[in-house]
């Protein structure tokens, strides 16, 4: 049996809102040691999502036996919208479940709402992702990266990221013209999450689909910072930290035709 209680429903709501436009169906793997893990790849095989909600993200977590919950995220999203952000949220499943029970508890009122979501058998490709060495890593405010991704998409369907020791440059060239945004590393002592940190083994220039970057920044509400790890001619890793766990996106680059 699985029983996981979140202190606030908002965490799972935000996680599902972050991924449901990229993948519609996915398996939630549940175990006592790892909590909930998900690996899902979008239909175009360009964007991969790796989610880990550790048991530490729950107020209470028990999973007697390893379970796989096949979920339609659009349907789960509909059910999660029934609860308030501040409600306790408990998810419950039997050992061989055909449905997931979702329970909201209002902390102030005596109101408990229960929903049952039908589960599905989902065949999914699982990819092996080895721990990669990266040429460089940038940590920056999540909202700032989101603004760049959204703004630059209006200029071009591709966004180039150029990292050097002294700066990170976002470059877009489109039909109406071109634009670039240059950020330099700095440390904000009072608000550390406002800092921009660059770690560099070697400079990197990579180009990504603006559409996919805009899917990724849907996770902005989850974390105040985003870490972007880039390697020449390889998929990029975008990581949003959860209170205990992470949401990672792996995005395949575009190449000069």
């Amino acid at each position: 049996m699985l029983e996981g209680k979140f202190e606030e429903a908002s965490l799972l709501k935000k996680v599902i809102e972050s991924i449901k436009d990229s993948v519609k169906l996915c398996n939630f793997n549940c175990s006592q040691s790892k909590g909930i893990t998900v690996q899902a790849i979008d239909d175009s095989r360009v964007l991969l999502i790796a989610l880990k909600i550790d048991s530490g993200s729950f107020q209470e977590f028990r999973c007697d036996r390893d379970l796989v919950l096949g979920l339609d995220l659009e349907s789960l999203s509909k059910i999660l919208k029934q609860g308030n952000n501040e409600d306790y949220l408990t998810i419950i499943a039997e050992d061989s479940p055909d449905s997931l029970l979702v329970v909201f508890e209002d902390k102030k009122k005596d109101r408990i709402s229960e929903f049952s979501l039908k589960l599905m058998d989902i065949d999914s490709d699982v990819l092996t992702i080895d721990d990669m060495e990266h040429d460089c890593s940038i940590t920056m405010p999540a909202y700032e990266f989101a603004k760049i991704a959204r703004d630059m998409k209006t200029l071009s369907e591709s966004l180039q990221i150029i990292i050097t020791k002294d700066s990170v440059k976002f470059n877009a060239e489109g039909q109406i013209g071109s634009g670039s945004i240059i950020l330099k590393p700095h440390t904000d002592m009072e608000k550390p999450d406002e800092s921009i940190k660059i770690e560099l083994n070697q400079p990197v220039v990579l180009t990504f689909g603006a559409k996919y970057l805009n899917d990724i920044v849907k996770a902005t509400a989850l974390s105040s910072t985003v870490t972007i790890k880039l390697t020449d001619k390889a998929p990029a890793l975008f990581e949003y930290r959860l209170p205990s766990g992470y949401l990672r996106y792996y995005l395949a680059p575009k190449f000069d035709d």
Partner: peptide
Amino acid sequence: KYKQSSLLAFFNAK
């Protein structure tokens, strides 16, 4: 101008 690559070219399917 740019061609989108696939993750399958980089990661091995199990």
